[in-house]
């Protein structure tokens, strides 16, 4: 279980982004966080991963106070984070990155398994460098694959659907449904996509730097569709096909 208590964070220029935010993610649950652009979702994810240091508040993982733990320590405790904007590396191959994530050398069939779960054919990609020649959708999927290769107790995916084509999107949803079925930790997905919201155990709405509402998908969807002031205009309706 992950618990955030009273978290606040301001930009280096002193603009408040997160304000006294409280969030609980129970074990074995898939929580989808949604809300308007600029509302503070990615910031929240970075606070959880330890990339940003909160100005105030406390963070607990399974009742252990991890407030002071740094990125590396949190990663070793089993917190994983798939970036909204994946990082590129000259000279590091897809295979190497996945192995770095797994913490060990992996046989080809294992790598294939992670890659096929994000709709990529391993053979075409494993020897490619994770550099700027990969397309936006490709690197996004590789980012997800590396996180799948980790042994996580809590995984945060930041807009995993962004840049991924519609056909693959359906498969990606299946991947998340699979993960959810075999969940031995908790998952947070930050998303604007209704189909991802639909597979959540709970939805949390983040706007103006705090949790505006958290609850069952049905209730939250109603709230989102009714109340534009909660969401702003970012919330996308289900795609046409």
């Amino acid at each position: 279980m992950l618990r955030l208590e009273n978290i606040s964070w301001s930009t280096p220029d002193g603009v408040g982004v997160l304000n006294n935010l409280d969030l609980t993610v129970p074990d074995g649950k898939l929580i989808v966080i949604t809300g308007p652009n600029g509302g503070g979702k990615t910031t929240l994810a970075k606070i959880i991963a330890g990339i940003y240091r909160q100005d105030g508040g406390k963070i607990f993982l399974n009742d252990r106070d991890i407030t002071e733990a740094d990125i590396t320590e949190r990663a070793k405790m089993g917190i994983s984070f798939a970036f909204q904007q994946p990082v590129r590396f000259k000279g590091i191959t897809v295979r190497r990155l996945i192995e770095l994530a797994a913490g060990e050398k992996l046989p080809l069939d294992k790598i294939c398994n992670y890659m096929s779960r994000v709709g990529l054919c391993a053979e075409e990609y494993i020897n490619r460098e994770v550099n700027s020649t990969l397309s936006g959708g490709e690197i996004k999927r590789i980012e997800i694959a590396t996180v799948l290769a980790r042994h996580s107790v809590l995984t945060v995916f930041d807009e995993p659907e962004a840049g991924i084509d519609l056909w693959s999107f359906t498969n990606l949803i299946k991947t998340f449904e699979d993960i959810r079925k075999n969940l031995d930790g908790s998952i947070i997905i930050i998303s604007h996509q209704e189909r991802i919201l639909r597979i959540a155990d709970e939805i949390a709405i983040v706007a103006d730097g705090s949790i505006k509402a958290q609850g069952k998908p049905d209730e939250m969807m109603k709230l989102l569709l009714e109340n534009n002031s909660v969401t702003g205009k970012c919330f996308k309706q289900e795609e046409m096909f």
Binding site: I51, D70, I71, T72, A75, V87, F89, G103, T146, R150
Partner: peptide, 11 residues
């Protein structure tokens, strides 16, 4: 950000 990314993998 490259260092941050690899640290989130436990390095």
């Amino acid at each position: 950000e490259q260092i941050l990314k690899l640290r989130t993998l436990g390095m």
